[in-house]
Design a binder for these strands. Structure first.
Lengths: 300, 300
DNA sequence: TTCTATTCATGCTTTTTCGGCATAAATCTA
DNA sequence: TAGATTTATGCCGAAAAAGCATGAATAGAA
């Protein structure tokens, strides 16, 4: 018994006429008659009652017709789903990200994911920038966002998503404003609230490079890897900070963002040996999200 | 894509080894490799990752393996059920019977039906003996029980099931007992309660033959086609009756059954042109029930 | 390292199956 | 009764599948 014969059976069951069914099935009538007879022998079930003039279904034939139509549909659906799995449209992707991705690319990516790959589940893990790489390499996540360059790392690949300005974050009552701002050296006497940054991190060099250029060493009032915490401390007059400008989007606190010249870049990172189509699709999705990103926070 | 290829796929998925799977499938390994490759091309889905040494399933392959096992089971179940339909083990049989079958063969038949053909639904219609034949011929029922001989009827077939004695039914306080009973002529002065019997009915001839033999014409007090009604009237001293002895089984009324010599035969009847396997199975079942019937009501 | 055994893939040949054609047999219609 | 329609059967060529021999790669043992 073969699927071809079942297809033929359904063809005959539809027209109840071997000649016409044969035409629909693109074979000649004798071939069809033989295949149906073969099927009946294999099954041990008489599907059609027929004389030299008429054809009709037996009760068992009617039952089989109805069931085979259902099975055929389920079969096709199953194949479609398997194709979706192969194409990376179905499954789970574990995403690691530092808090600084939360107000820029991440919501856009998740919206796109919902729209374009609704069968793909995203599992989100927020973590400090310093943890991101190790978590990825250890296989606890599949992709991550990072502000670190790691083009020379052998086990991971990286792609630039977008750049944005850094901003000085001061309490609302602070004397410094966008208008009177000239240099962060004006905050020389303020305490700084900065994320904990390891020596090897490029982001650390980016931040501290700014201080060096202006010729002072900032006083560290507090360290925190969580933007929300940092902004709250700034609001409470406990210091000033430097954060990516997109943080402005998620804050209703009484703090002021003063854009700086310096840019920070967000990257998308994945394991070199991970050829999963899900990861590939997700990277493409992030690319698309980054291209569509509106970074004009001034007007936001 | 053919069922053969799916069978091969499941074979390889089980062992993850083309050579061993080929042995299990009774083909040579190159043939198996080619068929799997063909299947992968047809589906557009890579089922196995393989190098020259190892084979393992892709995610899509795992999904398809699990789903195909389920589909295969459902497919086989469907074919089994179709075979049951063909063999008359599944469906509905409409059974007509006169009340006099109710205490003898019918319960036995229904028990056997439940045991041996649990997927066969019996639809019961009690009706007067005079209606049974017409209802059958008109196609409102598929089989019926009857006490009439109709071997010469062109449209129906008939088979004898069993014979039993007739009995005189008298009120408990009636003077006549098994011991002092000699002839129904002793009831010459009693009113008789008999079913309505058309002239053409053999059963009528059977009953009235007894009266003729004893040389008297019974006085008909009441007519009823329902045994329960007749017995109740007898209990209430409104007359005596003649019924098949098996009625004793279903009665807790204050009536006495006095066995007579005369026998009555119950037949099973069906339409000549009805070749349904369900009817055939049911007839066989009734035969079996009749053979196993315990007619020794004396000891019951 | 080298040899052997195992495993999957490829090329060629044989066998089986399937489809096409001609036609028979049966039945309905004019 | 003749013609049209429909299913079944016999025969043949084409296509597909299986078998066989062998190649290529690799893991494991000597």
């Amino acid at each position: 018994m073969e699927l071809r014969q079942i297809k033929y059976f359904l063809g005959v069951a539809e027209t109840l006429n071997f000649s016409k069914a044969a035409i629909n099935l693109n074979i000649v009538q004798p071939a069809l008659s033989r295949q149906i007879r073969q099927l009946e022998q294999d099954l041990g079930v008489v599907l059609f009652e027929r004389n030299n003039r008429n054809v009709w279904l037996t009760p068992a034939g009617m039952y089989l017709r109805d069931e085979m139509i259902k099975l055929d549909k389920r079969f096709k659906d199953t194949l479609d789903y398997a194709l979706s799995i192969q194409n990376g449209h179905v499954g789970t992707i574990r995403i690691g990200y530092p808090g600084s991705a939360l107000y820029s690319i991440l919501p856009e990516v998740l919206c796109l994911l919902q729209q374009k790959l609704p069968l793909l589940d995203g599992v989100l893990s927020e973590m400090a920038e310093v943890e991101v790489l190790e978590t990825l390499v250890n296989g606890h996540i599949d992709v991550c966002f990072s502000r670190e360059e790691m083009y020379d790392h052998p086990n991971v690949c990286q792609r630039k998503l977008f750049s944005e300005q850094l901003a000085l974050v001061v309490p609302e009552k602070h004397a410094l404003t966008k208008e009177n701002f000239k240099s962060i050296a004006q905050c020389r006497s303020d305490g700084f609230i900065l994320p904990y940054l390891a020596d090897w991190q490029m982001y650390r060099q980016l931040i501290y490079g700014m201080f060096n250029k202006e010729g002072f060493v900032p006083r560290i009032a507090y360290e925190s890897n969580f933007g929300a915490t940092i902004m709250r401390l700034v609001e409470k007059n406990l210091g000033v900070s430097i954060l990516p400008l997109s943080y402005r989007m998620g804050s209703s606190l009484k703090v002021r963002f003063i854009p700086l010249k310096t840019q920070t870049t967000l990257y998308m990172v994945w394991r070199t040996d991970d050829h999963s189509p899900i990861v590939r699709n997700f990277i493409d999705l992030c690319d698309e999200a980054a291209r569509g990103l509106n970074l004009d926070f001034e007007c936001g």
